[in-house]
């Protein structure tokens, strides 16, 4: 799959899809979306990049090992649940803060932290599977 058109478009497509995946992740609290589907969109972006430029380029672009990314996601998702210990409420209770930055109220929550963890778990796990499959294709 190394037509000139595809190789030229792939980085832009990847960037756009990665941005869209974060949009879907943040939108997910009250509307369709969320960490899982957002993560899958991000993996598709990386897969397109990988098909165009090879898996070495994806590994370089990710910087961290995909498995480490998913482990970090698992870590913060678990931490998001444990946060509630400090407030005397049961495990995984949603906690909210509303800081006002430049006159805009930004609702932040432990739910969002958990969802970000899910996003990273999906990105890391599926990317490492996709990369392993594509690497197997080369040999």
């Amino acid at each position: 799959m190394n037509t000139l058109i595809f190789r030229t478009v792939a980085p832009f497509l990847t960037a756009l899809m990665a941005l869209f995946s974060i949009f879907v992740l943040l939108r997910g609290h009250n509307e369709p979306g969320g960490g899982f589907i957002g993560g899958l969109i991000a993996v598709s972006a990386l897969a397109i990049f990988g098909i165009a430029n090879g898996i070495a380029a994806v590994r370089r672009a990710l910087w961290f090992h995909p498995m480490a990314i998913s482990a970090f996601g698992l870590f913060i998702a678990c931490l998001a649940g444990l946060l509630s210990a400090a407030f005397g409420v049961p495990f995984m209770t949603g906690l909210w803060v509303y800081p006002v930055v430049l006159g805009v109220e930004i609702p932040l929550s432990s739910v969002m932290l958990f969802d970000t963890g899910v996003y990273l778990v999906v990105v890391g796990a599926i990317t490492s599977i996709a990369l392993a499959l594509e690497a197997g294709d080369d040999v």
């Binding site: 090992h65 498995m67 480490a68 998913s70 482990a71 970090f72 698992l74 870590f75 678990c78 931490l79 649940g81 444990l82 210990a85 005397g88 409420v89 049961p90 495990f91």
Partner: peptide
């Protein structure tokens, strides 16, 4: 549940949560 949770009750969820945290750290440091 509106009553505050006694700290000792956290022991119920701690074993799996503790293992997941430690497992995630170990996976990052693979």
């Amino acid at each position: 549940v509106l009553t505050p949770v006694p700290a000792a009750d956290w022991l119920v969820v701690l074993p799996p949560a503790w293992c997941i945290l430690a497992g995630a750290v170990l996976l990052m440091l693979r």
